[in-house]
Design a protein around this nucleic acid. Structure first.
Ligand SMILES: [Mn+2]
Ligand SMILES: [Mn+2]
Ligand SMILES: [Zn+2]
Ligand SMILES: [Zn+2]
Lengths: 155, 155
DNA sequence: CCTGAACTGAGACTCGTTCTCATTCTACGG
DNA sequence: CCGTAGAATGAGAACGAGTCTCAGTTCAGG
């Protein structure tokens, strides 16, 4: 029951799907871009360029950054900036579905967590009201939960 | 329930109060540090070092960054990293009270918004549940609301 | 195949931020 | 009030993430 047609909510194995989106945005599907998308699919949360580079030894760093920029532009990848100074990249919410982030203060790992739809509806409602009260047109929200991950608590 | 003396919720004019906290953390109250705290008090949301430098023309950039680092260390200032690459600084939530951020996608401004306590209790509950479900010990949450500010919508 | 446009890769470069170290304050004891 | 030790400062060097340049390569389409 993975979804009828193309539900933009929870597909666990996006596969070539993602690349098609990139192609539709007018990009050539090159080796580097395929590799970057595949690497991002394999991650459990937003990942730094350095981490990606480690996995993609045959993609030079300038190409890696350029591929990421191009994919962000095409709406396929999102750049997020939790609390530290270096950017992290993940597949866009259009593809993976909306989610929140658990940010470990100890090891820095960021884990995606999918809220139940009722919980997130509640949050979205509150957010909408807050924005409206300040004459702000809200287009989305990000929730980062700070704390210590299971691995870091039991060393 | 939060504690007797200094309610950490909503003081609209922290004044010397903030500096006392810094002193209690073992810092000397120098001209630069006073100036930085005063500048942060005057801002309506987290602010970049460049913006602060513009207001603090007599504080050299290396001192500005060092003062900020020292104040962050003392728990008086928080460094936040919304969606862009450069850091922003604001007084810590201990002082200003917990709040969320409206991030304008057009001009980049970040505005503080204080949720009603009932709304935030709801969010905190959801966040707590999500964290627990992943073996994560949550110590706080950040909500960033993305959109377009009133000023940018009507040019 | 041929060809023009898109893409690549090595490295120079930018810019926010941190570090260094000689000099100047600050707080505190006398 | 000074004197003094140690903290803080300031100019500039250094650093690192990320971007840009440009000559060479790949790709799609004819
Ligand atoms: Mn949400
Ligand atoms: Mn909140
Ligand atoms: Zn951890
Ligand atoms: Zn704006």
């Amino acid at each position: 029951m993975t979804g009828g047609s193309t539900a933009p909510t929870a597909d666990p194995a996006p596969g070539e799907h993602v690349l098609r989106r990139a192609a539709d945005a007018g990009l050539r599907l090159t080796r580097a871009r395929r590799a970057v998308v595949a690497a991002l699919e394999a991650c459990t949360g937003p990942t730094t360029a350095a981490d990606l580079a480690e996995r993609l030894t045959d993609v030079p760093i300038s190409s890696l950054y350029r591929s990421l920029a191009v994919l962000v532009d095409a709406g396929v990848v999102a750049r997020v900036h939790e609390t530290e100074g270096t950017a992290r990249f993940e597949l866009a919410e259009d593809i993976t579905g909306h989610h929140h982030h658990l940010v470990c203060r100890s090891c820095g790992t960021v884990i995606d967590v999918r809220p139940t739809s009722s919980a997130d509806d509640t949050i979205a409602g509150i957010v909408e009201a807050e924005a409206a009260r300040h004459g702000f047109t809200a287009t989305g929200h990000h929730v980062d939960i700070e704390g210590v991950c299971a691995a870091c608590r039991t060393p």
